[in-house]
Write a protein that binds this DNA or RNA. Structure first.
Length: 267
DNA sequence: CGGGGCTCCTGTGCGC
DNA sequence: TGCGCACAGGAGCCCC
């Protein structure tokens, strides 16, 4: 599932490929993915727009056009792959260089929008801080946790709390911090809060360094897998031995989602 | 404010 | 062996 490191990897790839090219045409195989504006209007307005840059906010990929922005949310199974025409692609953008930007999406949860200003999107206005930006400091993080009574794992996955963290990186950050996923925030000791702050940043940076984790369908902009999956210590490893203490990795539900953790290392 | 449950969708994998 | 169903998950939404 694409989270911040996966989307950032795609962004960096596309930033090298797209700027300067013009969107000549769009082929729409799954109209439901186009959320805004209507499909006809989308087709009409996207044509002949020049690509100026590629940005990211949280898990949202933002392609800056000569007028307006094309935003893509990959959700669970979305892929943005640059290359030849792909007949399986749900949406295919034909570019002036002759190549295609293919949007694949097995489960059709993805969301594509053409908007005047991405900053006005409700999901953006609600979105919490970027965890890898300099202004996301320990002081900021402490302040954000103050007065909260929720369990830590669903909170980390809440995009309004922190942008870009999903199930996988939340699980790994909590493992590295020795914090049980069902712990309530108000029971965290100062030392644990500090560990968590450092490991959120650490695990996300490492995810980017290894070009993301291809547990399921994630691929980079060239269609290649990331390398981070083999470095996962708890996510998807139920029943396997903990790399630190050899206890068996457990799985519980928090906020309706699977949470993998080591029952011995995480309290 | 918090938490649970449902919804969208479809390939995978388990149980019978 | 083969079928059918539960499950997975990001995020919005409803409800208590």
């Amino acid at each position: 599932m694409p989270e911040l490191p996966e989307v950032e990897t795609i962004r960096r790839d596309l930033e090298k490929l797209l700027p300067g090219q013009i969107i000549k045409d769009v082929e729409i195989g799954a109209a439901k993915l186009i959320k805004e504006p209507g499909v006809r209007e989308f087709k009409r307005r996207i044509k002949n727009k020049k690509i100026k840059g590629v940005r990211r906010r949280g898990k949202l990929l933002i392609i800056e056009l000569s007028a307006g922005f094309l935003t893509c949310h990959l959700k669970l199974t979305g892929q943005l792959i640059y290359g030849e025409k792909d007949n399986k692609a749900k949406i295919g953008f034909l570019l002036s260089g002759g190549k295609y930007l293919n949007f694949n999406d097995l489960r059709l949860f993805g969301e594509i929008r053409l908007v005047d200003d991405w900053r006005n999107l409700l999901q953006i206005r609600r979105m919490g801080p970027e965890p890898l930006e300099a202004d996301f400091t320990f002081e900021t993080f402490k302040g954000m946790l103050e007065g909260k009574k929720s369990r830590i794992k669903p909170l980390l996955m809440d995009q309004a709390f922190i942008a870009g963290v999903g199930n996988l990186y939340a699980a790994e950050a909590l493992f590295r911090s020795g914090i049980h996923p069902a712990r309530t925030v108000n029971t965290l000791k100062p030392k644990e809060t500090e560990e968590l702050f450092l490991h959120i940043k650490g695990v996300l940076k490492e995810g980017i360094k290894y070009r993301g984790s291809s547990v399921d369908d994630y691929r980079d902009a060239s269609g290649k897998k990331g390398f981070f999956a083999s470095r996962l210590q708890v996510y998807g490893r139920e029943g396997e031995s903990c790399s630190r203490c050899k206890a068996k990795i457990s799985r519980i539900k928090t906020g309706g989602r699977s949470s993998y953790f080591c029952p011995k290392c995480q309290k």
